[in-house]
Structures are given as C-alpha cells and as structure tokens.
C-alpha cells in the first residue's frame, strides 16, 4: 500500500526517511559482504528484485475491485531475510514511482519503512516462529505473507494518522478512521496474497526444491518430507 507523492507533510516525510536510511544502509553493508563471499549473489539478488517488481505490477485476482497488487514483501523476507529485502524494496519502490506512478519520491522513506522494513521484519519473525513451533510449511508461509501484509497496512495507517491527527480523537481517532477506509481492500487482499504465496512456494518445491535449501528457507529433511507428500 503506497502513500502517494506529496501526501505526507513536512516534517513527517523527513522523519520516515531518517528512520529508513540506517536500515537500508545496513542492508547494503550486508549485501556487500555477501557479494564478496559468494560472487554469484548479486545476479541472483537482481533477478529476485526484478521478480518482485513484476509480481507487484500485476493485478491479483481481485475481491473488492480496487487497487489489488501483491506486495511480495513477505515472500522476499522469507527468501532473503529482512536486511536484503529492505535494499531490494527500496529499488523496487523507486521503479514503481517512476514507471507506474505508485508512491513517490518524498514519500519514499515512509513507503520503504512500511513495505521494505516493517512488513518483511514481521513476515520473517512469523516464519521463523512458525518453523520453531513445527507448524506445517505451507501454513507458515501463508501466515508470514498475510501478517507481513497486515503489518505493512497498519504501519501505513499509523504514518497517515501521525501526520493527520483527528481534532477530537487525536492520533488514535484518525488511526481508526484511516484504518477502516483501507481495511476494506487490505484485509481480503492480504488473505489472497497469503494463499498465492503459499501456492507459489508449493510449485517451486515441486519443480526446483533445491533452490529453497540453498536459500536456507528449509532444510533437506523438511524438503524430503514435503516432496513425499506430493502425489506422483
């Protein structure tokens, strides 16, 4: 869920930039180290970034009819971890602003924070937590993707509410107001994205499961178990 160019007033857009920049800088640092260790990382990351962009520019099978693009943030976090996802989503968001007019440049900081940092962080934690609890692999993926989407949506709502507190209810009042307006599209959308992400992982496991082992999403044993479950 992108905040449009010019929507956030001074000083809020600067604040979100200030909060996002250190995380992205850390992500770039991590990426540089990874690239030095294993040089094949950069092309693979680039292709993953392009994949996220293409996926997010396609329309999901829509429920309510309005803005229904998947964000792919939960998926990115599961595959590459939150730090690298922050870098990838910064690039993807700049391209979205320039090619598709989703989001903007002054609101880039806020959008990176909600979609590139908060969402992926939640998705990653949920996924790791679920694996520790030994939940079923696809259920964990579904939960991670859906909750990452909802986290993004809540953070965006918070960003709007902080910038435009309501006269009677303050920040909390406008948080509810913005929240209700966007919940109409975001709640079902996140569910659809969760299902799509889980199915997507299912196809990848069926066809090319070794990629998931390489990315440390799942270990050999887990992969073998999932493979057995596929009817021949």
């Amino acid at each position: 869920m992108h905040i449009m160019e010019g929507f956030l007033p001074h000083p809020w857009w600067e604040v979100w930039y200030a909060l996002s920049l250190p995380v992205v800088a850390y992500g770039i640092y991590r990426m540089n180290r990874l690239v030095k260790e294993r040089r094949e990382t950069l092309p693979l990351l680039a292709l993953a970034g392009a994949f996220i962009f293409v996926l997010s520019s396609l329309k999901l099978p829509s429920v309510t009819g309005s803005c229904s693009h998947p964000t792919g943030t939960g998926m990115g976090a599961i595959l590459f971890g939150p730090a690298l996802t922050a870098v990838l989503s910064l690039i993807v968001l700049v391209y979205q602003a320039l090619f598709l007019a989703h989001g903007g440049i002054t609101t880039l900081g806020a959008n990176v924070f909600s979609m590139g940092i908060a969402g992926p962080a939640v998705g990653y934690l949920v996924y790791r937590g679920c694996t520790r609890l030994n939940l079923h692999f696809y259920l964990s993926i579904f939960l991670a993707a859906t909750l990452a989407d909802w986290a993004t949506y809540l953070v965006t709502t918070l960003q709007l509410a902080l910038a435009f507190p309501s006269a009677t209810g303050g920040v909390v009042g406008s948080f509810y107001a913005f929240g209700t307006v966007f919940a109409l599209t975001q709640v079902p959308l996140a569910l659809v994205e969760g299902v799509v992400t889980a199915l997507l992982f299912k196809y990848i496991i069926q066809v090319k499961g070794d990629v998931m082992v390489k990315l440390k999403v799942i270990d050999e044993k887990g992969l073998g178990k999932l493979r057995e479950a596929i009817p021949a």
Binding site: P43, L47, A48, A50, L200, Y203, I204, V207
Partner: peptide, 20 residues
Amino acid sequence: FSMMAGTLFIRSWEQGERLY
C-alpha cells in the same frame, strides 16, 4: 496466478545462474 508466479520465480532463478 500462483502457478504463473511460481514458474516466473523458477525462470528468474535459472536466468540468474546463467547471467552469473
């Protein structure tokens, strides 16, 4: 949609290996 996205991911992964 998921089938298409899954295929796309696998294609992009293989393309990435070739690119490298």
